[in-house]
Design a protein around this nucleic acid. Structure first.
Length: 449
RNA sequence: CGGGGUAUAGCUCAGCUUGGUAGAGCACUGGUUUUGGGAACCAGGGGUCGCAUGUUCGAAUCCUGCUGCCCCGACCA
């Protein structure tokens, strides 16, 4: 993409409403625009990241055997009356009437609707297990939205719903999601620690929150330091095998949020040199809740003995619009964002320092062609602005590698390659720069490990 | 929902106390000179001062009401 043809409204100054660093950087890098309290447009640069995040989540969900579908944002109130949640949910749920005066709601979650889909078609235990997921915009009318898209009212969320014959099967499904989440967050560049969690209004008795440690996190978390060094399951993990050993290993150390533990309990169970008391951002949550919804809504199957029973269910969320700021909280410095390669909106920025100079233009045009032909996602800064502005802008928007072409380098046949993360620069022959960069990037994409 | 702020140009803000024809920097447009870490100069464009009401000869400025946004708390993916 040529920057001169792109829409990237970056800001030199920080809008005053932005409190935390990810919110400031998302505004400054032209990723989002606030439309109302807790409501944001995703501009091209931000949306590109959101889509990469979505793709990684989909790949790992699919790998774990979950099937993607799509449900409406607007739901009939009648479904929610069946489960009893229409009255229980409170003012967080946005209620709407249509022209026939029918009660609708903008979905804050989809347990009822997925039960409705399930019960319409699935009647036999032979069709289990089943895991259906969707990625959809949801709305919760938060009393106080804040921190940009970290806590917005309208948000994009992945929710997977598993259906199993009994608790044992549901736990196996839960474990698949557990392993998929470990892999997903690893690939997204945000090592997330699974912690025991409260089950909240959705209910249930088995739940883990996946927490990214960050000073700006909304809750206090307690964690054994060995949790930080655990091995992520590889791409070869067999989801048809028994995953309980992996889950048991990952849940063997103390890790819990403030909702379900206390400082006293933490200190009793973890030696002082292993204690991590920090703040955390919740980026995903797993729930097992049995027949809480299947029973009142009649999501039943006939078992092998010919008896009709309510299925065991769980729901497993990941907040996509929260993950993007979480990534930035974990990957930035004083100059701007530092994208991990797998989610970077572009992998390389090609900087033409002297737009209008024939040699610079020709070299850059050629490199731009080569980079694209090599399947590298490249942004070409071909604008006619000062060198300083280009460097500052490149650092702000955080593209992992900068290839700098200027009159000085052209004379010696060299380009400068800057690593955004380490700030290291090296001079590389222009004839070799594309291959060299490709070799650096490919292993970091993490799509084969 | 309780408490506290704030609202003037696309962005950051001054002006308000003490009423008198709306300002700066950045950004934007045209031009000249520049060019390896957010360039300089010249010339321009852009604002019903959040909305409404009142006081006044006269309101960005004072009164009253309303709304948006932000922060703290409770709540939450």
């Amino acid at each position: 993409m040529r920057l001169s043809n792109y829409f990237l409204p970056t800001l030199k100054e920080t809008p005053k409403e932005a409190e935390i660093v990810s919110h400031r950087l998302m505004l400054r890098a032209g990723m989002i625009k606030q439309q109302a309290a807790g409501s944001y447009s995703w501009l091209p640069f931000g949306y590109k990241v959101l889509r990469k995040v979505q793709t990684i989540i989909e790949q790992e969900q699919n790998r774990a055997g979950a099937l993607e579908l799509l449900m409406p944002t607007l739901q009939s109130a009648d479904l929610w009356r069946e489960s009893g949640r229409y009255d229980d949910y409170g003012k967080e749920m946005l209620r709407i009437k249509d022209r026939q005066d029918r009660d609708l709601l903008y979905g804050p979650t989809n347990e009822e609707m997925i039960c409705d889909i399930f019960r319409a078609s699935v009647k036999s235990y032979k069709d289990l297990p089943l895991n259906l997921y969707h990625i959809q915009w949801k709305f919760r009318d938060e009393i106080r939205p804040r921190f940009g898209t970290m806590r917005s009212r309208e948000f994009l969320m992945k929710d997977a719903y598993n259906f199993d014959l009994d608790k044992e099967g549901a736990v196996a499904s839960y474990n698949k999601m557990f392993v998929a989440y470990l892999r997903t967050f690893y690939r997204l560049g945000i090592p997330a620690i699974p912690m025991r969690a409260a089950t909240g209004p959705i209910g249930g008795d088995l739940s883990h929150e996946f927490i990214v440690l960050a000073d700006t996190g909304e809750s206090e978390v307690f964690c054994h330091s060995d949790m930080l060094d655990k091995e992520i399951p590889s791409i070869d993990v067999d989801y048809d095998s028994d995953l309980s050993d992996i889950v048991a290993d990952w849940t063997s150390h103390f890790a819990a949020t403030e909702d379900v533990t206390s400082k006293e309990e933490f200190e009793k169970n973890v030696p002082s040199d292993k204690r991590i008391l920090a703040r955390g951002i919740e980026v995903g949550q797993l729930f097992y809740f049995g027949d809480k919804y299947s029973k009142p809504m009649g999501a039943n199957v006939t078992n092998a003995q010919g008896k009709e029973i309510a299925v065991h269910m769980g729901s497993h969320g990941i907040g996509l619009t929260r993950i993007v700021p979480a990534i930035i909280e974990a990957h930035h410095d004083e100059n701007g964002i530092v994208w991990p390669v797998p989610v970077a909106p572009f992998e390389v920025i090609l900087i033409n320092l002297r737009k209008g100079d024939d040699a610079c233009d020709a070299t850059c045009d050629d490199l731009y062609r080569q980079l694209k032909a090599s399947n590298i996602d490249v942004l070409y800064d071909d604008r006619d602005v000062g060198a300083g502005a280009k460097f500052a802008n490149a650092d702000l928007i955080g593209i992992p590698y900068q290839i700098v072409i200027g009159p000085r380098g052209i004379k010696s046949g060299e380009a400068e390659l800057k690593n955004r993360k380490t700030s290291e620069r090296e001079n590389i022959k222009i004839s070799e720069i594309v291959l060299h960069t490709k070799n650096l990037i490919e292993p970091q994409r993490l799509d084969k490990v």
